[in-house]
Nucleic acid binder design. Sequence first.
DNA 1: ATGACTTGCGCGGCAAGA
Length: 258
Amino acid sequence: MRIASWNVNSVRQRIEQLLAYLRAVSPDVLCLQEIKCEDAAFPRAEVEDAGYNVATHGQKTFNGVAILSKRPIEVVRGLPKFEHDPQARYIEAVAPDDAGVVRIASIYLPNGNPPSSEKYAYKLAFMDCLAAHAASLLRQEEAVVLAGDYNVIPAAGDVYDPQAWAGDALFLPETRARFQTLLNLGYADALRAVSDAPGLYTFWDYQAGAWPKNHGLRIDHLLVSPQAADRLKSVAIDKELRAAGRASDHAPIRLDLA
DNA sequence: ATGACTTGCGCGGCAAGA
């Protein structure tokens, strides 16, 4: 089973790249973040014509997440116990596969900058609530993949200039500690299960020539429960999508389960 | 270096992202 995650930075701006990705990589499930539109404005017909069921949790202008699946899915919208959140940042689905079912979340964690603001407190509160929900999912002993744009740089090897990012909401100790809490629960960072190489980035800013200079960040992650980790075959970052014209500033990340 | 980005909204230029 192939599961991918991509922050598209506006699904309406990226529809041609999205359809090409579905054709080329053929994920069984694709998690999207930053669709930046209400549910009714999602290019549903084009994606359905490509062979996918579509579940969206969108809002006007900002944020918004979606899950596309070849096979029918059961869907929950919003992070449980965080339902009052006006920002659309979480959608979860149960997808059937040949080995049973896999529970998959598409997560768009808050950026949190500047750290002195309410935006950072919101980020930390979201992460605390996510950890509580992630813990409850583990108790069901299912294969779980928590996919998305975490807006977390886990370690110094995941950013081109760690010193320059030391005070950023993506890299502060309080942020990294909460990401580590998810791992301590029993989830594995799928990419780190297959490689300890530095410089495996998923994001390059549009500004200041970040892409040609390879000034990247690893902030999009696939966290897998033990039952999913046992089935992990491979992980890849599709960075060629960042090089294409009219690219998102994020590249997709994906894994294959046996 | 008088520069150096991309969205949504909505029609001018700001807010937000990371």
